[in-house]
Amino acid sequence: MDAVTLLTVVVLAVFVGFEVISKVTSKLHTPLMSGANAIHGIILVGAIIVAGQTNDPWLLAVAIAAVVLATANMVGGFVVTDRMLEMFRGKKPAAKTGEDAK
């Protein structure tokens, strides 16, 4: 792909990033960080590509290490973000207030 097309993609992605993030509520800044973290784990795709295109044992070892690290980043990131977001619950339905005293 030529340089100008790539630059176009980058610039548009920067603006989308700024737009989307500025709407994130500050309550969710921690899940935002871990979610963004999980997204850059997509370097896994790059790691798979390099690991699949080398036969030199040393280079392959490095590439496999990259696959392990990237997987940990991506999978761990999504799991922990889900765990956090699960905890953010709204108020329970008002109908139950009478039973609060048990």
Binding site: V9, V10, G17, I21, L32, M33, A36, H40, V45, G46
Partner: peptide, 20 residues
């Protein structure tokens, strides 16, 4: 790697990290 997905995803995170 000439991979647009990595480019977009990385840039998104870079932008979000910067703004945060």
């Amino acid at each position: 790697l000439g991979n647009v997905l990595l480019l977009v995803a990385g840039t998104l995170v870079g932008a979000s990290g910067t703004i945060l």
